[in-house]
């Protein structure tokens, strides 16, 4: 599961300002969603956790992680049914995404 910027670069179509804007928002929004996800798991609010995992799922696909997308979709379904057996795998995915985004410099920083 290795993230890439293929989709974002294709979308930006050479527009560096737009590319930086997307990456800036991703870098700010993802940690907020991760915090919300962990808090909802800790408070056993799996419905809210599923909602936040759903939002993170879009970011997984933005970073071109096809395997990660499937894992996230499965975890979202599982949470809606009140289970969380895929939580460790999902946490691993979050770590990969966070490390990748932190390694990217954007002009907005």
């Amino acid at each position: 599961m290795k993230p890439n910027l293929n989709y974002i670069k294709q979308l930006a179509n050479g527009n560096a300002t737009f590319e930086n804007r997307i990456l800036g928002v991703l870098k700010r929004e993802l940690p907020e969603e991760i915090d919300g996800f962990r808090n909802s798991i800790n408070s056993l609010d799996y419905a809210l956790a599923a909602m936040l995992v759903h939002k993170i799922k879009h970011k997984v696909s933005l970073l071109g992680m096809e395997d990660g997308y499937k894992l996230t979709a499965d975890f979202e379904d599982e949470l809606r049914e009140g289970a969380k057996s895929l939580q460790d795998d999902f946490e691993g995915l979050l770590k990969i995404m966070t490390t990748f985004l932190n390694s990217i410099n954007t002009e907005t920083e």
Binding site: L11, N15, F18, R21, I22, V25, L26, R28, E29, K55, H58, K59, L62
Partner: peptide, 13 residues
Amino acid sequence: DDEETSRVILDQL
């Protein structure tokens, strides 16, 4: 859309 990333992408497009 409650997700800012989506709003930014749609805004640009």
